[in-house]
């Protein structure tokens, strides 16, 4: 039986799932509730502050890059199997290409954008 390459996708899925579980809820609360409803002082997302933070620290840039890209692979793997589970197994190769391809494309686009800061 052929050796499976699933471990690479599964480990990206797991890492992305952990990052998403740990970090996304608080970010959504910030951008979806705290900032729009003015529940925090001094407009914390103002351009100067965020741009400076990102452009001056490779570490912050790297963390945000990971927070954006790893969950894309989490989605790719989970959504791929969701589609298979609802009976699309006959086109599973195409599904894999679209899902992982999407996550890889997102990662490349993210890399290009991040290099511009």
């Amino acid at each position: 039986m052929a050796k499976s390459n699933e471990p690479i996708w599964w480990s990206l899925f797991s890492a992305g799932g952990m990052v998403a579980a740990m970090i996304l809820p608080v970010l959504i609360i910030i951008t979806g509730i705290l900032v729009p409803f003015g529940l925090v002082d001094d407009d914390p997302l103002n351009f100067e502050r965020i741009y400076t933070a990102l452009s001056q620290s490779y570490l912050i840039k790297l963390i945000l890059f990971i927070v954006i890209t790893l969950p894309l692979f989490h989605w790719a793997h989970r959504f791929r199997f969701t589609l298979v589970d609802v009976g699309l197994k006959s086109v599973s190769t195409l599904i894999s290409i679209l899902c992982y391809g999407g996550a890889i494309a997102g990662t490349i686009i993210a890399a290009i954008i991040f290099l511009r800061i």
Partner: peptide
């Protein structure tokens, strides 16, 4: 492991 680690083994499980 040959069987367990194959696609038909554990990796189809969601």
């Amino acid at each position: 492991q040959e069987l367990i680690a194959s696609h038909e083994g554990i990796w189809e499980c969601t």
